[in-house]
Nucleic acid binder design. Structure first.
Lengths: 239, 239
DNA sequence: GCTCATAACGGTACTACGTACCATTATGGT
DNA sequence: ACCATAATGGTACGTAGTACCGTTATGAGC
Protein backbone atom coordinates (compact mmCIF):
# COMPACT_ATOMS: atom_id res chain seq x y z
CA UNK A 1 0.00 0.00 0.00
CA UNK A 2 2.48 2.59 -1.16
CA UNK A 3 0.75 5.89 -0.83
CA UNK A 4 0.76 8.59 -3.41
CA UNK A 5 3.14 11.49 -2.92
CA UNK A 6 2.00 14.00 -0.34
CA UNK A 7 1.77 16.75 -2.90
CA UNK A 8 -0.73 14.84 -4.97
CA UNK A 9 -2.79 13.75 -2.02
CA UNK A 10 -3.11 17.35 -0.95
CA UNK A 11 -4.21 18.50 -4.37
CA UNK A 12 -6.73 15.72 -4.58
CA UNK A 13 -8.20 16.45 -1.19
CA UNK A 14 -8.34 20.13 -2.03
CA UNK A 15 -10.17 19.67 -5.30
CA UNK A 16 -12.62 17.26 -3.75
CA UNK A 17 -13.42 19.57 -0.89
CA UNK A 18 -13.72 22.59 -3.14
CA UNK A 19 -16.29 20.68 -5.14
CA UNK A 20 -18.15 19.52 -2.08
CA UNK A 21 -18.47 22.70 -0.06
CA UNK A 22 -16.97 25.43 -2.18
CA UNK A 23 -13.65 27.19 -2.10
CA UNK A 24 -14.17 29.74 0.67
CA UNK A 25 -15.94 27.20 2.82
CA UNK A 26 -12.89 24.97 2.78
CA UNK A 27 -10.04 25.79 5.12
CA UNK A 28 -6.50 24.64 4.75
CA UNK A 29 -7.02 22.59 7.88
CA UNK A 30 -9.87 20.78 6.19
CA UNK A 31 -7.61 19.90 3.30
CA UNK A 32 -4.74 18.63 5.40
CA UNK A 33 -7.09 16.68 7.58
CA UNK A 34 -8.57 14.84 4.65
CA UNK A 35 -5.17 14.26 3.15
CA UNK A 36 -3.96 12.91 6.47
CA UNK A 37 -1.11 15.38 6.63
CA UNK A 38 -0.04 18.31 8.72
CA UNK A 39 -0.83 21.89 8.00
CA UNK A 40 2.83 22.75 7.69
CA UNK A 41 3.23 20.22 4.94
CA UNK A 42 0.58 21.92 2.89
CA UNK A 43 2.39 25.22 2.88
CA UNK A 44 5.62 23.46 2.10
CA UNK A 45 4.21 22.27 -1.21
CA UNK A 46 1.92 25.14 -2.03
CA UNK A 47 2.62 28.74 -1.31
CA UNK A 48 -1.00 29.51 -0.67
CA UNK A 49 -4.44 28.03 -0.73
CA UNK A 50 -4.96 29.36 -4.25
CA UNK A 51 -1.70 27.85 -5.35
CA UNK A 52 -3.00 24.34 -5.05
CA UNK A 53 -5.19 24.99 -8.07
CA UNK A 54 -2.50 26.60 -10.21
CA UNK A 55 0.45 24.42 -9.37
CA UNK A 56 2.80 24.39 -12.31
CA UNK A 57 2.19 27.85 -13.49
CA UNK A 58 5.53 29.22 -12.52
CA UNK A 59 7.25 26.30 -14.10
CA UNK A 60 5.41 26.82 -17.34
CA UNK A 61 6.26 30.47 -17.36
CA UNK A 62 9.95 29.84 -16.79
CA UNK A 63 9.90 27.18 -19.42
CA UNK A 64 8.51 29.61 -21.93
CA UNK A 65 10.87 32.35 -20.94
CA UNK A 66 13.75 30.01 -21.71
CA UNK A 67 12.13 28.92 -24.89
CA UNK A 68 11.71 32.47 -26.07
CA UNK A 69 15.07 33.74 -24.95
CA UNK A 70 16.73 30.79 -26.64
CA UNK A 71 14.90 31.55 -29.84
CA UNK A 72 16.89 33.19 -32.51
CA UNK A 73 15.47 36.60 -32.92
CA UNK A 74 14.67 36.18 -36.55
CA UNK A 75 12.05 33.60 -35.76
CA UNK A 76 9.89 36.46 -34.65
CA UNK A 77 6.19 35.99 -34.31
CA UNK A 78 6.55 32.36 -35.17
CA UNK A 79 8.23 31.86 -31.85
CA UNK A 80 5.46 33.69 -30.07
CA UNK A 81 2.83 31.61 -31.80
CA UNK A 82 4.67 28.50 -30.79
CA UNK A 83 4.90 29.66 -27.22
CA UNK A 84 1.19 30.35 -27.14
CA UNK A 85 0.58 26.91 -28.54
CA UNK A 86 2.65 25.45 -25.76
CA UNK A 87 0.32 26.97 -23.24
CA UNK A 88 -2.69 25.58 -24.99
CA UNK A 89 -1.12 22.16 -25.28
CA UNK A 90 -0.34 22.24 -21.61
CA UNK A 91 -4.01 22.72 -20.82
CA UNK A 92 -4.97 19.98 -23.23
CA UNK A 93 -2.62 17.61 -21.49
CA UNK A 94 -4.15 18.45 -18.16
CA UNK A 95 -7.46 17.36 -19.55
CA UNK A 96 -10.07 16.95 -16.87
CA UNK A 97 -8.05 18.83 -14.30
CA UNK A 98 -8.08 21.92 -16.46
CA UNK A 99 -11.83 21.77 -16.82
CA UNK A 100 -12.26 21.22 -13.12
CA UNK A 101 -10.17 24.28 -12.46
CA UNK A 102 -12.21 26.23 -14.96
CA UNK A 103 -15.38 25.31 -13.13
CA UNK A 104 -13.83 26.68 -9.97
CA UNK A 105 -12.38 29.85 -11.43
CA UNK A 106 -15.72 30.60 -13.03
CA UNK A 107 -17.45 30.59 -9.70
CA UNK A 108 -14.89 31.99 -7.30
CA UNK A 109 -13.88 35.61 -7.89
CA UNK A 110 -10.62 35.30 -6.02
CA UNK A 111 -9.54 32.47 -8.27
CA UNK A 112 -10.60 34.26 -11.38
CA UNK A 113 -8.50 37.24 -10.38
CA UNK A 114 -5.60 34.99 -9.77
CA UNK A 115 -5.90 33.54 -13.24
CA UNK A 116 -6.08 36.97 -14.79
CA UNK A 117 -2.85 37.86 -13.07
CA UNK A 118 -1.27 34.71 -14.39
CA UNK A 119 -2.15 35.41 -17.97
CA UNK A 120 -0.88 38.94 -17.53
CA UNK A 121 2.52 37.43 -16.79
CA UNK A 122 2.51 35.60 -20.08
CA UNK A 123 1.43 38.74 -21.81
CA UNK A 124 4.33 40.64 -20.36
CA UNK A 125 6.76 37.98 -21.41
CA UNK A 126 5.45 38.08 -24.96
CA UNK A 127 5.46 41.82 -24.99
CA UNK A 128 9.11 41.98 -24.08
CA UNK A 129 10.06 39.41 -26.65
CA UNK A 130 8.10 41.11 -29.38
CA UNK A 131 9.61 44.44 -28.50
CA UNK A 132 13.09 43.01 -28.79
CA UNK A 133 12.22 41.38 -32.05
CA UNK A 134 10.71 44.53 -33.50
CA UNK A 135 13.77 46.46 -32.51
CA UNK A 136 16.05 44.01 -34.25
CA UNK A 137 14.00 43.23 -37.29
CA UNK A 138 11.58 45.94 -38.13
CA UNK A 139 13.91 48.72 -38.99
CA UNK A 140 13.20 50.85 -36.01
CA UNK A 141 15.96 53.06 -34.80
CA UNK A 142 17.09 53.61 -31.27
CA UNK A 143 15.65 57.01 -30.71
CA UNK A 144 13.35 57.48 -27.76
CA UNK A 145 10.45 57.97 -30.07
CA UNK A 146 11.13 54.77 -31.98
CA UNK A 147 11.60 52.82 -28.80
CA UNK A 148 8.26 54.02 -27.57
CA UNK A 149 6.54 53.07 -30.78
CA UNK A 150 8.06 49.63 -30.53
CA UNK A 151 6.97 49.23 -26.94
CA UNK A 152 3.45 50.32 -27.74
CA UNK A 153 3.21 48.06 -30.74
CA UNK A 154 4.61 45.15 -28.79
CA UNK A 155 2.22 45.56 -25.93
CA UNK A 156 -0.77 45.80 -28.18
CA UNK A 157 0.23 42.76 -30.18
CA UNK A 158 0.97 40.73 -27.08
CA UNK A 159 -2.41 41.66 -25.63
CA UNK A 160 -4.14 40.65 -28.83
CA UNK A 161 -2.32 37.33 -29.02
CA UNK A 162 -3.14 36.48 -25.44
CA UNK A 163 -6.75 37.49 -25.89
CA UNK A 164 -7.02 35.26 -28.93
CA UNK A 165 -5.52 32.37 -27.03
CA UNK A 166 -7.80 32.86 -24.07
CA UNK A 167 -10.84 32.96 -26.23
CA UNK A 168 -10.07 29.67 -27.90
CA UNK A 169 -8.98 28.14 -24.64
CA UNK A 170 -12.25 29.04 -22.95
CA UNK A 171 -14.16 27.57 -25.83
CA UNK A 172 -12.35 24.31 -25.29
CA UNK A 173 -12.80 24.47 -21.53
CA UNK A 174 -16.51 24.86 -22.05
CA UNK A 175 -16.55 21.91 -24.39
CA UNK A 176 -17.47 23.97 -27.41
CA UNK A 177 -14.64 22.62 -29.47
CA UNK A 178 -12.86 19.28 -29.39
CA UNK A 179 -9.55 20.09 -31.00
CA UNK A 180 -8.82 23.75 -30.39
CA UNK A 181 -5.40 23.87 -32.03
CA UNK A 182 -6.55 24.64 -35.55
CA UNK A 183 -8.80 27.35 -34.21
CA UNK A 184 -5.95 28.72 -32.19
CA UNK A 185 -3.65 28.83 -35.18
CA UNK A 186 -6.28 30.54 -37.18
CA UNK A 187 -6.96 33.11 -34.51
CA UNK A 188 -3.29 33.83 -33.95
CA UNK A 189 -2.74 34.01 -37.67
CA UNK A 190 -5.40 36.64 -37.97
CA UNK A 191 -3.89 38.72 -35.26
CA UNK A 192 -0.51 38.58 -36.91
CA UNK A 193 -2.02 39.33 -40.25
CA UNK A 194 -4.03 42.22 -38.95
CA UNK A 195 -0.95 43.88 -37.60
CA UNK A 196 0.79 43.38 -40.90
CA UNK A 197 3.91 42.24 -39.19
CA UNK A 198 6.42 43.33 -40.08
CA UNK A 199 5.20 44.83 -43.30
CA UNK A 200 4.06 47.88 -41.46
CA UNK A 201 3.57 49.19 -44.89
CA UNK A 202 5.16 52.58 -45.03
CA UNK A 203 3.25 54.55 -42.50
CA UNK A 204 2.33 58.15 -43.04
CA UNK A 205 5.29 59.22 -41.01
CA UNK A 206 7.59 57.85 -43.65
CA UNK A 207 9.42 55.44 -41.42
CA UNK A 208 10.35 52.80 -43.93
CA UNK A 209 10.32 49.49 -42.27
CA UNK A 210 11.97 46.26 -43.13
CA UNK A 211 14.36 47.67 -45.63
CA UNK A 212 17.31 45.67 -44.44
CA UNK A 213 15.50 42.58 -43.32
CA UNK A 214 16.17 39.08 -44.41
CA UNK A 215 13.75 36.27 -44.87
CA UNK A 216 10.76 35.69 -42.68
CA UNK A 217 7.90 33.47 -43.62
CA UNK A 218 5.21 32.23 -41.34
CA UNK A 219 2.90 29.49 -42.35
CA UNK A 220 0.22 27.70 -40.44
CA UNK A 221 -0.86 24.21 -41.07
CA UNK A 222 -3.80 24.45 -43.28
CA UNK A 223 -6.03 22.30 -45.34
CA UNK A 224 -5.50 24.45 -48.35
CA UNK A 225 -3.45 22.76 -51.05
CA UNK A 226 0.06 23.81 -51.66
CA UNK A 227 -0.48 25.26 -55.11
CA UNK A 228 -3.02 27.72 -53.85
CA UNK A 229 -0.64 28.66 -51.10
CA UNK A 230 2.21 29.21 -53.46
CA UNK A 231 0.21 31.37 -55.74
CA UNK A 232 -0.86 33.42 -52.76
CA UNK A 233 2.73 33.70 -51.72
CA UNK A 234 3.75 34.88 -55.16
CA UNK A 235 1.03 37.45 -55.12
CA UNK A 236 2.16 38.80 -51.79
CA UNK A 237 5.90 38.64 -52.06
CA UNK A 238 6.18 39.34 -55.72
CA UNK A 239 4.69 42.76 -55.42
CA UNK B 1 -10.55 73.26 13.82
CA UNK B 2 -13.00 71.38 11.69
CA UNK B 3 -11.35 68.12 10.80
CA UNK B 4 -11.31 66.55 7.40
CA UNK B 5 -13.68 63.66 6.74
CA UNK B 6 -12.61 60.39 8.25
CA UNK B 7 -12.29 58.76 4.87
CA UNK B 8 -9.74 61.27 3.70
CA UNK B 9 -7.77 61.20 6.89
CA UNK B 10 -7.46 57.45 6.59
CA UNK B 11 -6.26 57.63 3.01
CA UNK B 12 -3.76 60.30 3.90
CA UNK B 13 -2.38 58.38 6.83
CA UNK B 14 -2.18 55.25 4.72
CA UNK B 15 -0.27 56.85 1.88
CA UNK B 16 2.12 58.53 4.25
CA UNK B 17 2.86 55.33 6.09
CA UNK B 18 3.25 53.33 2.91
CA UNK B 19 5.83 55.83 1.79
CA UNK B 20 7.61 55.79 5.11
CA UNK B 21 7.89 52.11 5.84
CA UNK B 22 6.46 50.33 2.85
CA UNK B 23 3.16 48.65 2.21
CA UNK B 24 3.65 45.29 3.86
CA UNK B 25 5.33 46.86 6.83
CA UNK B 26 2.28 48.97 7.52
CA UNK B 27 -0.65 47.39 9.35
CA UNK B 28 -4.18 48.61 9.34
CA UNK B 29 -3.74 49.36 13.01
CA UNK B 30 -0.86 51.65 12.16
CA UNK B 31 -3.07 53.54 9.75
CA UNK B 32 -5.99 53.96 12.08
CA UNK B 33 -3.71 54.98 14.89
CA UNK B 34 -2.16 57.76 12.85
CA UNK B 35 -5.54 58.85 11.58
CA UNK B 36 -6.82 58.90 15.13
CA UNK B 37 -9.67 56.57 14.29
CA UNK B 38 -10.80 53.11 15.16
CA UNK B 39 -9.96 50.02 13.23
CA UNK B 40 -13.61 49.34 12.50
CA UNK B 41 -13.95 52.69 10.85
CA UNK B 42 -11.22 51.84 8.40
CA UNK B 43 -13.01 48.78 7.14
CA UNK B 44 -16.22 50.69 6.94
CA UNK B 45 -14.76 53.01 4.34
CA UNK B 46 -12.42 50.62 2.60
CA UNK B 47 -13.12 46.99 1.97
CA UNK B 48 -9.50 46.04 2.37
CA UNK B 49 -6.08 47.42 2.95
CA UNK B 50 -5.47 47.45 -0.79
CA UNK B 51 -8.69 49.27 -1.37
CA UNK B 52 -7.43 52.44 0.23
CA UNK B 53 -5.17 52.90 -2.77
CA UNK B 54 -7.80 52.17 -5.42
CA UNK B 55 -10.78 53.92 -3.92
CA UNK B 56 -13.08 55.01 -6.71
CA UNK B 57 -12.42 52.24 -9.06
CA UNK B 58 -15.80 50.61 -8.74
CA UNK B 59 -17.50 53.92 -9.18
CA UNK B 60 -15.57 54.60 -12.35
CA UNK B 61 -16.39 51.22 -13.73
CA UNK B 62 -20.09 51.61 -13.08
CA UNK B 63 -19.98 55.05 -14.56
CA UNK B 64 -18.50 53.70 -17.74
CA UNK B 65 -20.88 50.80 -17.90
CA UNK B 66 -23.73 53.28 -17.85
CA UNK B 67 -22.03 55.46 -20.38
CA UNK B 68 -21.55 52.59 -22.77
CA UNK B 69 -24.93 51.01 -22.31
CA UNK B 70 -26.54 54.38 -22.88
CA UNK B 71 -24.61 54.82 -26.10
CA UNK B 72 -26.49 54.29 -29.26
CA UNK B 73 -25.05 51.27 -30.87
CA UNK B 74 -24.08 52.98 -34.06
CA UNK B 75 -21.54 55.08 -32.24
CA UNK B 76 -19.42 51.99 -32.14
CA UNK B 77 -15.73 52.27 -31.53
CA UNK B 78 -16.08 55.97 -31.06
CA UNK B 79 -17.89 55.24 -27.82
CA UNK B 80 -15.17 52.87 -26.73
CA UNK B 81 -12.50 55.43 -27.47
CA UNK B 82 -14.40 57.95 -25.45
CA UNK B 83 -14.74 55.57 -22.57
CA UNK B 84 -11.02 54.89 -22.63
CA UNK B 85 -10.41 58.59 -22.65
CA UNK B 86 -12.58 58.94 -19.59
CA UNK B 87 -10.31 56.58 -17.74
CA UNK B 88 -7.25 58.52 -18.76
CA UNK B 89 -8.84 61.81 -17.83
CA UNK B 90 -9.71 60.40 -14.46
CA UNK B 91 -6.08 59.64 -13.80
CA UNK B 92 -5.06 63.07 -15.00
CA UNK B 93 -7.47 64.65 -12.58
CA UNK B 94 -6.03 62.63 -9.75
CA UNK B 95 -2.69 64.17 -10.55
CA UNK B 96 -0.14 63.56 -7.86
CA UNK B 97 -2.21 60.87 -6.22
CA UNK B 98 -2.12 58.77 -9.36
CA UNK B 99 1.66 59.05 -9.53
CA UNK B 100 1.99 58.19 -5.90
CA UNK B 101 -0.11 55.10 -6.45
CA UNK B 102 2.00 54.19 -9.44
CA UNK B 103 5.12 54.37 -7.34
CA UNK B 104 3.50 51.94 -4.93
CA UNK B 105 2.11 49.54 -7.50
CA UNK B 106 5.49 49.41 -9.17
CA UNK B 107 7.15 48.21 -6.03
CA UNK B 108 4.53 46.02 -4.37
CA UNK B 109 3.56 42.87 -6.26
CA UNK B 110 0.23 42.49 -4.50
CA UNK B 111 -0.80 45.95 -5.57
CA UNK B 112 0.36 45.41 -9.09
CA UNK B 113 -1.75 42.29 -9.30
CA UNK B 114 -4.68 44.17 -8.00
CA UNK B 115 -4.30 46.79 -10.69
CA UNK B 116 -4.07 44.18 -13.38
CA UNK B 117 -7.34 42.73 -12.21
CA UNK B 118 -8.88 46.16 -12.31
CA UNK B 119 -7.90 46.80 -15.90
CA UNK B 120 -9.20 43.37 -16.81
CA UNK B 121 -12.62 44.50 -15.66
CA UNK B 122 -12.52 47.42 -18.05
CA UNK B 123 -11.38 45.13 -20.78
CA UNK B 124 -14.30 42.85 -20.22
CA UNK B 125 -16.72 45.72 -20.30
CA UNK B 126 -15.30 46.92 -23.58
CA UNK B 127 -15.30 43.45 -25.00
CA UNK B 128 -18.97 42.99 -24.33
CA UNK B 129 -19.85 46.33 -25.81
CA UNK B 130 -17.78 45.73 -28.92
CA UNK B 131 -19.29 42.32 -29.38
CA UNK B 132 -22.78 43.78 -29.26
CA UNK B 133 -21.79 46.46 -31.68
CA UNK B 134 -20.20 44.06 -34.11
CA UNK B 135 -23.27 41.90 -34.03
CA UNK B 136 -25.47 44.85 -34.88
CA UNK B 137 -23.28 46.63 -37.36
CA UNK B 138 -20.77 44.41 -39.01
CA UNK B 139 -22.96 42.11 -40.98
CA UNK B 140 -22.47 39.07 -38.89
CA UNK B 141 -25.27 36.60 -38.68
CA UNK B 142 -26.57 34.83 -35.65
CA UNK B 143 -25.13 31.43 -36.29
CA UNK B 144 -22.97 29.91 -33.62
CA UNK B 145 -19.96 30.27 -35.81
CA UNK B 146 -20.57 33.94 -36.45
CA UNK B 147 -21.21 34.61 -32.82
CA UNK B 148 -17.93 33.04 -31.97
CA UNK B 149 -16.09 35.09 -34.54
CA UNK B 150 -17.65 38.21 -33.12
CA UNK B 151 -16.69 37.26 -29.60
CA UNK B 152 -13.12 36.53 -30.61
CA UNK B 153 -12.81 39.73 -32.57
CA UNK B 154 -14.31 41.74 -29.74
CA UNK B 155 -12.00 40.30 -27.15
CA UNK B 156 -8.93 40.90 -29.24
CA UNK B 157 -9.89 44.47 -30.01
CA UNK B 158 -10.74 45.20 -26.40
CA UNK B 159 -7.40 43.81 -25.31
CA UNK B 160 -5.59 45.92 -27.85
CA UNK B 161 -7.42 49.07 -26.85
CA UNK B 162 -6.71 48.54 -23.19
CA UNK B 163 -3.08 47.74 -23.89
CA UNK B 164 -2.72 50.94 -25.87
CA UNK B 165 -4.31 52.94 -23.10
CA UNK B 166 -2.13 51.38 -20.46
CA UNK B 167 0.99 52.06 -22.41
CA UNK B 168 0.26 55.75 -22.77
CA UNK B 169 -0.95 55.98 -19.20
CA UNK B 170 2.27 54.51 -17.87
CA UNK B 171 4.26 56.94 -19.95
CA UNK B 172 2.41 59.77 -18.30
CA UNK B 173 2.76 58.25 -14.87
CA UNK B 174 6.50 58.06 -15.39
CA UNK B 175 6.59 61.66 -16.46
CA UNK B 176 7.61 60.84 -20.01
CA UNK B 177 4.83 62.87 -21.51
CA UNK B 178 3.03 65.96 -20.26
CA UNK B 179 -0.22 65.81 -22.15
CA UNK B 180 -0.97 62.18 -22.95
CA UNK B 181 -4.34 62.69 -24.61
CA UNK B 182 -3.06 63.29 -28.12
CA UNK B 183 -0.83 60.25 -27.83
CA UNK B 184 -3.74 58.25 -26.54
CA UNK B 185 -5.94 59.26 -29.42
CA UNK B 186 -3.20 58.39 -31.85
CA UNK B 187 -2.62 55.00 -30.30
CA UNK B 188 -6.31 54.15 -30.14
CA UNK B 189 -6.74 55.37 -33.68
CA UNK B 190 -4.06 53.03 -34.86
CA UNK B 191 -5.66 50.08 -33.15
CA UNK B 192 -9.00 50.86 -34.72
CA UNK B 193 -7.39 51.38 -38.09
CA UNK B 194 -5.41 48.19 -37.86
CA UNK B 195 -8.53 46.18 -37.29
CA UNK B 196 -10.10 47.90 -40.24
CA UNK B 197 -13.11 48.95 -38.27
CA UNK B 198 -15.67 49.49 -39.50
CA UNK B 199 -16.14 47.77 -42.77
CA UNK B 200 -14.02 44.79 -41.97
CA UNK B 201 -13.50 44.86 -45.67
CA UNK B 202 -11.94 41.80 -47.18
CA UNK B 203 -8.22 42.11 -47.50
CA UNK B 204 -6.62 42.24 -50.90
CA UNK B 205 -5.98 38.56 -51.01
CA UNK B 206 -9.64 37.79 -50.83
CA UNK B 207 -9.70 36.09 -47.49
CA UNK B 208 -12.58 37.94 -45.97
CA UNK B 209 -12.98 37.83 -42.28
CA UNK B 210 -16.25 36.07 -42.26
CA UNK B 211 -15.16 33.34 -44.58
CA UNK B 212 -15.19 29.79 -43.40
CA UNK B 213 -11.76 28.78 -44.61
CA UNK B 214 -9.00 27.91 -42.23
CA UNK B 215 -6.21 29.13 -44.39
CA UNK B 216 -3.71 31.52 -43.00
CA UNK B 217 -0.55 32.52 -44.73
CA UNK B 218 1.59 35.35 -43.60
CA UNK B 219 4.31 36.59 -45.83
CA UNK B 220 6.76 39.36 -45.21
CA UNK B 221 8.27 41.41 -47.90
CA UNK B 222 11.72 40.09 -48.20
CA UNK B 223 14.74 40.21 -50.35
CA UNK B 224 14.98 36.47 -50.48
CA UNK B 225 14.18 34.99 -53.83
CA UNK B 226 10.90 33.29 -54.38
CA UNK B 227 12.25 29.79 -54.91
CA UNK B 228 13.83 29.71 -51.52
CA UNK B 229 10.63 30.91 -50.00
CA UNK B 230 8.57 28.29 -51.73
CA UNK B 231 10.83 25.49 -50.61
CA UNK B 232 10.55 26.80 -47.08
CA UNK B 233 6.82 26.88 -47.40
CA UNK B 234 6.73 23.33 -48.63
CA UNK B 235 8.82 22.22 -45.76
CA UNK B 236 6.51 23.84 -43.26
CA UNK B 237 3.13 23.13 -44.73
CA UNK B 238 3.84 19.88 -46.44
CA UNK B 239 4.66 17.99 -43.31
C1' DG C 1 21.44 -5.17 11.19
C1' DC C 2 23.33 -0.67 12.85
C1' DT C 3 24.62 4.22 12.42
C1' DC C 4 24.10 8.39 10.96
C1' DA C 5 23.22 12.19 7.87
C1' DT C 6 19.53 14.15 5.48
C1' DA C 7 15.14 14.85 3.89
C1' DA C 8 10.26 14.83 4.95
C1' DC C 9 6.80 15.78 8.17
C1' DG C 10 4.26 17.62 12.46
C1' DG C 11 3.28 20.99 16.16
C1' DT C 12 3.08 25.38 18.34
C1' DA C 13 2.99 30.06 18.48
C1' DC C 14 2.48 34.36 16.24
C1' DT C 15 1.02 38.28 13.07
C1' DA C 16 -2.39 40.44 10.55
C1' DC C 17 -6.47 40.76 7.50
C1' DG C 18 -11.20 40.77 7.38
C1' DT C 19 -15.96 39.92 9.59
C1' DA C 20 -19.71 40.00 13.01
C1' DC C 21 -21.86 42.07 16.57
C1' DC C 22 -22.87 45.22 19.94
C1' DA C 23 -21.90 49.46 22.57
C1' DT C 24 -21.11 54.32 22.47
C1' DT C 25 -20.90 58.87 20.93
C1' DA C 26 -21.90 62.79 17.79
C1' DT C 27 -25.44 65.24 15.01
C1' DG C 28 -29.32 67.64 13.67
C1' DG C 29 -34.09 68.51 13.60
C1' DT C 30 -38.38 69.52 16.38
C1' DA D 1 -34.18 69.08 26.10
C1' DC D 2 -35.45 65.02 23.39
C1' DC D 3 -35.02 61.72 20.21
C1' DA D 4 -34.01 59.39 15.85
C1' DT D 5 -30.27 58.34 13.11
C1' DA D 6 -25.81 58.25 11.47
C1' DA D 7 -21.02 57.79 12.62
C1' DT D 8 -17.64 55.74 15.36
C1' DG D 9 -15.34 52.50 18.74
C1' DG D 10 -14.45 47.97 21.00
C1' DT D 11 -14.22 43.08 21.45
C1' DA D 12 -14.06 38.64 19.87
C1' DC D 13 -13.41 35.42 16.32
C1' DG D 14 -11.92 32.74 12.06
C1' DT D 15 -8.41 31.95 8.91
C1' DA D 16 -4.27 32.59 5.85
C1' DG D 17 0.41 32.60 5.97
C1' DT D 18 5.15 32.67 8.52
C1' DA D 19 8.81 31.25 11.76
C1' DC D 20 10.89 28.01 14.35
C1' DC D 21 11.90 23.84 16.30
C1' DG D 22 11.10 19.12 17.32
C1' DT D 23 10.18 14.47 15.49
C1' DT D 24 9.96 10.79 12.31
C1' DA D 25 11.00 8.39 8.00
C1' DT D 26 14.56 7.14 4.54
C1' DG D 27 18.43 5.45 2.58
C1' DA D 28 23.53 5.03 1.98
C1' DG D 29 27.63 2.96 3.83
C1' DC D 30 29.72 -0.24 6.81
Amino acid sequence: MSKKPARDRLAEAAFDLFDERGYEQTTVDDITERAGLGRTTFFRYYRSKEDVIFPDHDRLLEQMAERLSATSSEAGMLAVSDAVRVVMVHYLQEGKVARRRYALTSRVPALRDREIVSTARYQRLFSEFIAAWLTDNAGYGRSDSDRDQVALQAEVIAAAMVAAHNHVLRRWLRGQVQDPLPELDKALGRVIKVFAIPGLTPAGDGSSVGATDDTAVIAFRTSTDLDTLISSLKRIVGS
